[in-house]
């Protein structure tokens, strides 16, 4: 199951060259670039772990790519995303966020339907245990 989230999620995965260009775009706009990783790509999980500090005073994307390579080396079996935080007044929020790494075996989710009082229906996104876990 291919997890999609953030920008460009319906495009094929970005190549390193494309990532470099996106990062350069962030830096040119003066956004702080962050590398984050997680084992739990649930859409409601907003707390990904940070790889190092936000990078806000770089001139060139090569520095970010160096960190990304290092992060992939250590956490290549997890989801990694890059986000750009705009600290300027009025924005003060993440302006761009996209996946740059996925594990060899992706996480599986399913939508669980639950009937509750008065025939109302609740839906929950539940992570499915990998089917091949036993093998």
């Amino acid at each position: 199951m291919k997890i999609t989230q953030g920008c460009f999620s319906y495009l094929p995965d970005l190549t390193d060259e494309q990532i470099t260009r996106q990062v350069q775009y962030c830096l040119a706009n003066g956004w702080a670039v962050n590398i984050e990783f997680t084992e739990d790509p649930h859409p409601r999980n907003i707390y990904w772990e940070m790889w190092g500090l936000p990078m806000f005073d770089l001139q060139d994307a090569a520095g970010v790519m160096m960190e990304l390579a290092e992060c992939r080396r250590v956490y290549g079996d997890r989801y990694i995303r890059i986000s750009g935080f705009d600290s300027s007044h009025g924005w003060e929020s993440v302006r761009i966020s996209f996946l740059v790494n996925r594990p060899p075996r992706e996480a599986e989710f399913e939508l669980v339907r639950q009937e509750v009082g008065g025939r109302a229906i609740r839906y929950t996104t539940v992570r499915r245990q990998a089917a091949h876990a036993s093998t």
Partner: peptide, 11 residues
Amino acid sequence: TKEILKKAMGG
């Protein structure tokens, strides 16, 4: 050192 190197990248 890496922090400085990152800043200097491209220059």
